[in-house]
Design a protein around this nucleic acid. Structure first.
Lengths: 192, 192
DNA sequence: AGAAGTACTGTACTAGTAGTTCAGTAGTGG
DNA sequence: CCACTACTGAACTACTAGTACAGTACTTCT
């Protein structure tokens, strides 16, 4: 309350926040929500458990910052102007993120908690939003507004089901196939 | 080992298995995987914790039977022969199951564990298989074999994303829309 | 530089839970 | 009626989440 306006943060606090959030994000991606506890994060970051509790009283507090950090790190593939190619790139990036980056387990953990915890519901929305930003951008740029949402849902859903629920690899051919099908109604000329 | 062939089960064992599995299934749907412990299931079913451990040593053992039971209860809407109508009915049933029956949290719990536990991976596959049987059946009956898998993945994915990840209601109009789009490439004549 | 304030540490503690053990009880099949 | 086995309940171990707090180290202000 004393120095709230100018807000010159104590460098110790800045250091601690940075390190602990990085450790939380790493643990969340590597071990999943269930294994990402205050104690584990403190161990990884090299701080005392009490310090972590002092900054983030609840697990959701900790996850909120960790997920925000993870979302910051998400990179978008560059758009070239060709709808099919850009979509293919964006969906490939999504598939990559889902399988390699372990977003699947992370997302599952958030969804499981979202049923009971209001805070987790926000996290779910933000995470989904971030993961699909690339695809949404390409569709918004190339489609009529009415077509964006259903196409987004079908394309993202197909990749997500393939990667997370069927546990199968998302191949380039698969992505090409679903793009062709999803855009069939939208484009007057048959692509490819 | 003594009476394995004819297998006349002790009625006490049959009773216990039936009651505990029912309680596990109920807890799994109502409270989620995380809250479905041996102790909680024993309390619900009215048996001793030790008895539950005796029958199902690990949590996955218990979940396996509970999920099998849940899958048995799944009902399929009757097929009428019209592709669009049958698909609409099957996808509505899926959406209903996802939101009302809390399959979303259940599925999320299974996926989260599937990353570490081999047994949970089997459960994920079986659960996904069961949830999509209705839609798959309709597609198999009405489409060329090559079209079944991609259409299934897109339609199921769209419903799943809508219900579970976006947290929005799956309306009848939404289902009609995605069916039209998914089948656009498949049917020579534009439906509706 | 020194003082005053605050962040972090390490340890110890409480409370609660997963899982085990086992002697005792009661239902089952022969 | 007897031998057998399933279930009970209570006690116990081992582990974990979260709290408390006195001591130390860093930062900022004068």
């Amino acid at each position: 309350m004393a120095k709230s306006s100018s807000d010159p943060v104590d460098p110790r606090v800045a250091r601690t926040r940075r390190d602990v959030i990085a450790a939380s994000a790493a643990s969340l991606l590597e071990e999943g929500w269930g294994a990402t506890t205050h104690a584990e994060v403190a161990r990884r970051a090299g701080y005392s458990k009490a310090t972590v509790y002092a900054h983030w009283p609840t697990t959701v507090d900790l996850m909120r910052d960790a997920i925000a950090r993870i979302c910051e790190d998400a990179t978008l593939p560059p758009a070239g102007g060709n709808l099919h190619e850009d979509l293919h790139a964006a969906l490939s990036a999504l598939a990559q993120t889902l399988s390699e980056g372990r977003y699947d387990r992370l997302m599952a953990g958030v969804i499981e908690r979202a049923a009971q915890d209001e805070g987790a519901r926000d996290l779910r929305d933000r995470l989904y939003e971030t993961a699909t930003t690339g695809v949404r951008g390409v569709l918004t740029a190339g489609l009529r507004p009415d077509d964006v949402e259903p196409c987004l849902t079908m394309l993202v859903g197909a990749v997500l089901v393939r990667a997370t629920y069927e546990g199968e690899a998302v191949t380039s051919e698969f992505i090409t196939d679903i793009i062709d099908r999803a855009l069939a109604r939208v484009e007057p000329t048959a692509g490819h």
